[in-house]
Amino acid sequence: TLKVHYKYTVVMKTQPGLPYSQVRDMVSKKLELRLEHTKLSYRPRDSNELVPLSEDSMKDAWGQVKNYCLTLWCE
């Protein structure tokens, strides 16, 4: 499951381990945003700071799954 905080919160079913490009595509379609305006980030467990997502950091983000849910933020 993927939970995304935006102006409102959406929850989507997804497969764990998807690459950033696929996750961003899913989120942009769900929120009806243009792909270039979809910026995603996540919060590591040991931090209060949001970390921007990229293809490289997506593996780390999937490591933050809690209760089968990855929580992301969209700007």
Rank of each mutant, 00 (worst) to 15 (best):
L2R: 01
L2G: 00
L2Y: 08
L2W: 02
L2F: 02
L2C: 00
K3W: 07
K3L: 07
V4L: 00
H5G: 02
H5C: 03
H5R: 06
H5Q: 03
Y6V: 04
Y6I: 12
Y6T: 04
Y6A: 06
Y6C: 13
Y6R: 04
K7R: 12
Y8P: 00
Y8D: 13
Y8S: 13
Y8E: 14
V10K: 03
V10L: 07
V10E: 04
V10P: 00
V11I: 12
V11L: 12
V11A: 07
V11G: 04
V11E: 13
V11M: 08
K13L: 04
K13W: 05
T14E: 04
Q15A: 11
Q15G: 05
Q15M: 09
Q15S: 11
Q15N: 09
P16T: 13
P16G: 08
P16F: 15
P16Q: 13
P16H: 11
G17E: 09
G17W: 09
G17R: 05
G17H: 14
G17N: 15
L18F: 05
P19S: 13
P19F: 10
Y20W: 01
Y20G: 04
Y20F: 09
Y20P: 00
S21H: 15
Q22P: 11
Q22G: 04
V23A: 02
V23D: 09
D25K: 12
D25T: 07
D25S: 11
D25F: 06
D25L: 10
M26Y: 10
M26D: 04
M26V: 04
V27C: 02
V27A: 05
S28W: 05
S28P: 04
K29C: 03
K29N: 09
K29G: 03
K30V: 08
K30M: 07
K30I: 04
K30F: 02
L31G: 00
L31K: 05
L31D: 07
E32R: 15
E32M: 12
E32Y: 08
E32G: 15
L33R: 03
L33S: 02
L33E: 00
R34G: 12
R34V: 10
R34M: 10
E36T: 05
E36P: 00
E36C: 06
E36W: 04
E36F: 02
E36D: 10
E36Q: 08
H37P: 06
T38L: 13
T38I: 14
T38D: 03
T38K: 07
T38V: 15
K39G: 10
K39M: 11
K39A: 11
L40S: 01
L40K: 05
L40G: 02
S41Y: 15
S41H: 12
S41G: 03
S41T: 01
S41P: 03
S41M: 15
S41C: 08
Y42S: 01
Y42P: 00
Y42T: 00
Y42I: 09
Y42V: 06
R43E: 00
R43P: 09
P44Y: 02
R45H: 14
R45S: 13
R45P: 10
R45E: 13
D46T: 07
D46K: 03
D46Y: 08
D46A: 08
D46W: 11
D46N: 15
S47C: 08
S47F: 05
S47N: 07
S47E: 07
N48L: 12
N48M: 13
N48C: 14
N48S: 13
N48H: 10
E49F: 12
E49S: 10
E49W: 03
E49M: 11
L50N: 08
L50V: 05
L50K: 07
V51M: 09
V51G: 04
V51F: 07
V51W: 02
V51Q: 05
V51A: 05
P52K: 06
P52F: 00
P52R: 07
P52E: 15
P52A: 12
P52Q: 14
P52W: 01
L53F: 04
L53Q: 03
L53K: 03
L53V: 00
S54F: 07
S54L: 00
S54K: 12
E55F: 00
E55T: 07
E55D: 12
D56Y: 06
D56P: 03
D56G: 10
S57H: 00
S57G: 09
S57V: 10
S57D: 01
M58F: 03
M58D: 01
M58E: 06
M58H: 03
M58T: 05
K59D: 14
K59C: 06
K59R: 13
K59F: 15
D60S: 02
D60V: 07
D60N: 07
A61D: 07
W62L: 02
W62M: 01
W62Q: 00
W62N: 01
W62V: 08
G63S: 13
G63R: 11
G63F: 01
G63L: 12
G63E: 11
Q64I: 06
Q64T: 15
V65G: 11
V65I: 09
V65F: 07
V65C: 13
K66R: 14
K66G: 11
N67C: 07
N67S: 09
N67W: 02
N67Y: 09
Y68L: 13
Y68A: 15
Y68G: 15
C69S: 10
C69R: 02
C69M: 06
C69W: 01
L70S: 12
T71S: 10
T71A: 01
T71N: 12
L72C: 03
L72K: 04
L72G: 00
L72R: 01
W73V: 01
W73Y: 09
C74H: 06
C74V: 14
C74M: 03
C74L: 02
C74K: 05
